[in-house]
Simulated assay, not measured.
Amino acid sequence: MAKRNKPYKKHIYWLNANQVSALKKNLETRHIKLKYAKGIVCTPMDRINKIAVVTPDVWSETCRRQGSWYRTSDKNGLYLVISSFELADFETDRAAVITQSDFILPEPAPLNEKQLLFESPQLQERMPPEWGQVEDTEKRIYLRWAKRLGSAERDYDQLHKTHTANHANFIEPEFFIETMDGIIPYSIDRSAHLCSCCVELFQVLGSQFKKKLVAPCPGAVIFARLKPDRYLLVESA
């Protein structure tokens, strides 16, 4: 009989170096290995990874430009721990719990709405200068990834505008669900047209909201094997 997968769940923690050392020792007593992400921030989101840590330097490796959101945030210098199980000794350091959602994007944000998000003062105040410094090689990679996920977009400038507007929607939301507990902002386009979903998943952006609905970007689809366009529910701890 085939083994059934447990429901997808990841617990997100931000720890300092001493806490990570203590965690590693604790896990060793339980014969659990703490893995270390190499080169790419999002690989611990893969279902097969039980628990992993992202050291601060990883944010400056493969996705260095995208990592500028982390380096200009209050998380800078902290270690990201992504676990499939709760860490009782670090309950106060848990930032979020991530599960799969059945949310379906009603429709992608129209171009004029993306432009307004792109120009929003709140975004301009928060956006790192390095975010806009895109080399030609990276432009080609993102266009290739978009095509791989079924997009016909051939203009990187339009793609970058969507990337940026999507981040803006988690700073000062224009696209969200209204609930009794407040608004739930969501990713404004399909996975093919997104970038660096890690900053929303790991509470670098949008931590002020109790809940967020985040679609995986192409990198998370490719390197963490997340399903394209399958939204993840991020609930603040």
Rank of each mutant, 00 (worst) to 15 (best):
E91L: 10
T92A: 09
T92R: 13
T92E: 14
D93H: 12
D93P: 00
R94C: 05
R94V: 01
A96T: 05
V97Y: 02
I98Y: 07
T99M: 01
T99D: 04
Q100Y: 01
Q100W: 00
S101R: 07
D102C: 01
F103E: 15
F103P: 11
I104D: 12
L105S: 12
L105G: 15
P106A: 00
E107W: 10
P108R: 13
P108C: 02
A109Y: 03
A109P: 06
L111I: 04
N112A: 00
N112L: 11
K114H: 13
Q115I: 09
L116M: 09
L116C: 11
L116F: 07
F118N: 15
F118G: 13
F118Y: 14
S120K: 05
P121H: 00
L123S: 04
Q124D: 12
Q124Y: 05
E125P: 02
R126P: 11
M127D: 13
M127W: 05
P129N: 06
E130I: 02
W131G: 11
W131V: 02
W131K: 12
G132H: 07
G132L: 08
Q133H: 02
D136L: 06
D136R: 04
T137S: 14
T137Q: 11
T137F: 02
T137N: 07
K139V: 06
K139R: 15
K139F: 02
R140I: 10
R140Y: 04
I141N: 10
I141W: 03
L143A: 10
R144V: 06
R144M: 03
W145K: 15
R148A: 15
R148D: 12
R148H: 07
L149E: 08
G150Q: 03
G150D: 02
S151P: 06
A152W: 00
A152V: 02
E153V: 08
E153I: 14
R154M: 09
R154P: 00
D155C: 11
D155S: 07
Y156V: 02
Y156F: 15
Y156T: 09
D157V: 05
Q158S: 09
H160M: 08
K161I: 05
T162I: 12
H163L: 06
H163W: 09
H163R: 03
H163P: 08
T164C: 10
A165T: 07
A165W: 00
N166V: 05
H167I: 02
A168W: 04
A168F: 02
A168C: 09
N169T: 12
N169L: 08
I171G: 06
I171T: 09
I171H: 11
E172N: 14
P173A: 02
P173S: 07
E174N: 13
E174I: 04
E174R: 15
F175E: 12
F176M: 05
F176K: 11
I177K: 12
I177F: 04
I177M: 11
I177C: 09
I177S: 13
E178A: 06
E178S: 15
E178Y: 08
E178M: 05
T179A: 03
M180I: 14
M180N: 14
D181C: 01
G182H: 05
